[in-house]
Amino acid sequence: MLLRLFSRVFLGLCAIMVALPIVVVSGAALNSGRTMFFPPREPTLARFGEFFITEPVWTQALANSIVIAFCSAFLAVLLAWPVAFGLWANNSRASRLLAGLGSMPFALPPIVFGVGLGFLWAFAGGLGTLWAAILSHAALFLALPLVTISIGLQSIDRAHLDAAATMGATRAVTFRTVVLPQTIPYTISGFFFALVLSFNEFIVTFFVSASAYSTVTLQIFNSLRNGYTPTMAVAAITFIVVSVVVFSAVARWGDLPRLMGAEPSKT
């Protein structure tokens, strides 16, 4: 009984700790002045207007963030699919190597990858362009859809493929009617993981943007030394809301515990 109480309290404490800075940032967004205080002084929602509508610095940064996040997540999924499929279908040394190379940027310190990408785009001539940032994020977060799609493919019962074959399905038809529909939730999950992380990414964006444009995280970082403004807190809230919505969607339509590595649920 004591143990149960203890575990409740412990879980609660963890929740508070995780939420604390988020709550603080959110609260600070309500400040009316130019400086951050917590608890907020003279609460107002004016900062939200600044962030979303009136301040071109922020609205442009937000637009860039969204474009980069969506395009790079889409590209990451597009690249991850054939890699994951090759891994599942052949499991040859070559396909394992390819998957390993594709996951490397995510596994190693991002600052090194960011520096390298900076050099790469300086050579290729894409430094400071949005498309370079899109390609960079696609490479950085390729590992995420790669993992989710692989989990999805592994969850397909191989007997399903045999069953389709005995019913007259060619390989292409089997792929279209059996493999693809069963892996769509996993593909979407992978897309969202890449999307949210790209949205929040900072280091790599910093190196490939070369200060030619800015994203929300970059913008916040750039004003880091000038002191925080409550508008930045609004950005933070936006990001938290986007993350919660996206992951709730993944949890709602996909099996989140399974994706995170729990045993398949018995339903």
Partner: peptide, 27 residues
């Protein structure tokens, strides 16, 4: 409950380093 916690944790996890530092900085 696990799924709910995971949503919460993943949101916190994906939150940019910049924001987390900002939060702790204020704190």
């Amino acid at each position: 409950a696990q799924a709910a916690w995971l949503v919460f944790l993943l949101s916190s996890l994906s939150l940019s380093e910049v924001f987390i530092v900002m939060g702790w900085d204020v704190l």
